[in-house]
């Protein structure tokens, strides 16, 4: 059981990295990786939101939406799973809003650091993608918790290393048209290649 959980965690951080292997969260990745401090801030915010929303969405899916999930109120034949997109995105938007209010109330320092990023995260595809993968891979509740957390860690690692590389790249002299976005994509490709090396390791 625990080995399995460790496996899910390592898989979501390295071999199945949400950004480098499944391409999720690219938009904010390209836009925010210019500066290392904002990258760290956004990274923590993503970890936070993912570790909260994935288990919450698990509960919603398994007690309300999945085929036969409503048998606890006597409706075993109802299948609401087609509603999962709209439910998940509503949960994510609501959770992000709630987290923003809670952080604002209890920790001004944290709010100053994370506050600006939280609204961005609501439409980050990594968040919705993790919830959808969690359904597709039939994770249990504890697994979904680990999976959400691990995906966040993987995303943060990718964006921080990207920001570090981009700082170095400022002094490079790329050919016309290559600077900025195209170069970022190619560097991401090379990073993805590096992360693929982890796939030889089995757990």
């Amino acid at each position: 059981m625990t080995e399995n959980l460790v496996g899910i965690f390592l898989n979501s951080v390295f071999t199945g990295n949400i950004l480098l292997a499944y391409f999720l969260g690219m938009c904010s990745f390209v836009a925010v990786s210019k500066n290392i401090n904002t990258a760290i801030g956004l990274g923590f915010a993503v970890i936070f939101v993912l570790s909260v929303t994935t288990p919450v969405n698990w509960l919603i899916y398994h007690f309300l939406l999945a085929p036969g999930a409503l048998h606890w109120i006597g409706l075993p034949d109802v299948n609401l799973s087609f509603l999962k997109f709209i439910m998940f995105i509503a949960v994510i938007a609501a959770m992000v809003q709630a987290i923003e209010i809670i952080i604002d109330r209890f920790s001004a320092a944290l709010y100053a650091g994370l506050g600006v990023f939280l609204p961005l995260i609501a439409v980050n595809c990594a968040i919705l993608g993790t919830s959808l993968f969690m359904v597709e891979r039939n994770h249990t509740f504890v697994e979904s918790l680990i999976f959400g957390f691990g995906s966040g860690v993987g995303w943060m690692m990718a964006i921080i290393s990207m920001a570090a590389i981009r700082i170095k790249l400022r002094y490079a002299n790329p050919p016309y048209g290559m600077e900025g976005y195209p170069l970022t994509m190619i560097v991401t490709g090379l990073m993805a290649m590096a992360f693929m090396l982890f796939s030889g390791i089995s757990f």
Binding site: P182, I186, G189, L190, M196
Partner: peptide, 15 residues
């Protein structure tokens, strides 16, 4: 067919 190639091709196309 692997993930890294997609990144690199998009980068080259944008260029």
């Amino acid at each position: 067919l692997l993930a890294p190639a997609a990144f690199i091709i998009i980068g080259l196309l944008v260029w």
